[in-house]
Amino acid sequence: MNLFRLCGDLSHVVSIVLLLLKIRATRSCVGISLKTQFLYLVVFVTRYLDLFVTFISLYNSVMKVAFISTTAYILYLMFFKFKHTYDKDHDTFRIQFLIAFAAALAFVTPHRYSLLEVLWTFSLWLESVAILPQLYMLQTTGECENLTSHYIFALGLYRALYAVNWVYRYSTEPGYWQPVTWIAGILQTALYGDFFYYYVASRRRGKRLKLPT
C-alpha cells in the first residue's frame, strides 16, 4: 500500500458517496446512467468473487464488500425508489458491445485459465469501458448537476491515481508486473480525457459543467 493507491481508493469511495448524496439530496437520479451503474455492479461482483478464497488484508476485504453493497444500493434506488426520475430516453448506449468486448479480451488475456482469473480479467476490461454509457448520456444532454460532474470527476481521478501507483510500484517492487491491469487502467483513464478538460474549464469559470453537443 502506498499513498497513491490509498488516495485512489479514497477517491473511488468519495465518488460513490457523491452519487448517493446526489440521489438522496435531490430525490432523483436524473442524469445518471443506470447502464453504467449496472456495469459497475457486474464489475465488482465478477472481480471480488475472490473474497471467499483469497485473503489479502482486512482493508481489501472491507472495501470489496463496501463496493458491492453500495453499488447494489444505488441500483436499488434507481430501479425502485426513484425510478420515475430515471432518464431512460437519454440512456441509450448499447452495452452489449461493451460486455462482448470485455468477454472476448477476458478469454485472450488472463494470467492463466481458471474461472476466477478469467472473471477477474473480464472485470478489468469491463471496468475500463463501463463509464461510456454515462459519458454518452452527458454528451447527449450537454449539461449535468454539479454533484453529478463531481461524481464523474472523482471516478476518473481514482484510476488516474492508480496509474501513478503502478509506476511507483514498478519502480520500487522487484517482480511487480501487471500488464493487463495497466493497459485496461490506462484505457479507462484515457476515456475521461475530454471530460476532465471540460470539468476543469467549468470549475475555473465557477459555472456548471457544459459540454458541446
Partner: peptide
C-alpha cells in the same frame, strides 16, 4: 514474464 499474483489491488 508472468504477472505477479495474487491480486492485491482493488
Amino acid at each position: 514474464r508472468t504477472a505477479s499474483r495474487p491480486h492485491d489491488e482493488l
